[in-house]
Design a protein around this nucleic acid. Structure first.
Length: 149
DNA sequence: GCCAACGTTGGC
DNA sequence: GCCAACGTTGGC
């Protein structure tokens, strides 16, 4: 089992929608490093759900990988996520499916993450723009403990 | 709304 | 293949 952090803008796909949908195909990621992480995910991996563009931005819930990465269908459709280089034989972008696991009792804000020594090396703090990131087991466990009773 | 960080594009 | 210009993300 590997551990990840996936970001969603509060106004793009909030946790409320994810909780209602139960499952979500993680489409629309258009960054090659993020794509590499999406493709490295295995069924059953755990992912922290993070709200960006939020006040405050925070880790708010938990998800798990339910289906490993498949070609992202939005790259073939006219619209924001269209990818002219993509063909059905050679897709460019991939998306796994996540299953909703839980909403944390206590969300952990970015400001709080910065105060915790054990979390000071998180990718979240080092590469703030990356929307799909690996998280170490140690970091994951610290966060889980802080977010649950 | 500003702007730093950083990814991408395109001219050469 | 370099790098300047430009666009986007996301914290504040």
């Amino acid at each position: 089992v590997k551990y990840w952090l996936i970001k969603s803008g509060l106004h793009e796909y909030p946790l409320d929608d994810f909780e209602r949908d139960k499952k979500a195909l993680w489409v629309g990621v258009r960054n090659h490093l993020a794509k590499k992480h999406l493709m490295a995910m295995s069924k059953g991996d755990q992912a922290l759900f993070y709200h960006s563009q939020s006040d405050p931005s925070a880790v708010v819930g938990l998800a798990k990988v339910s289906v490993e990465a498949l070609p992202d269908p939005t790259q073939f459709e006219k619209g924001d996520y269209f990818e002219p280089r993509a063909t059905k034989d050679k897709p460019v972008w991939f998306a796994p499916e996540f299953a909703f696991v839980k909403r944390f009792k206590h969300s952990l804000s970015l400001g709080e993450v910065k105060k915790v020594t054990a979390l000071s090396e998180m990718v979240l703090l080092k590469a703030s723009r990356l929307s799909v990131q690996p998280v170490t087991k140690e970091e994951f466990e610290v966060i889980l403990e802080m977010c649950n009773d």
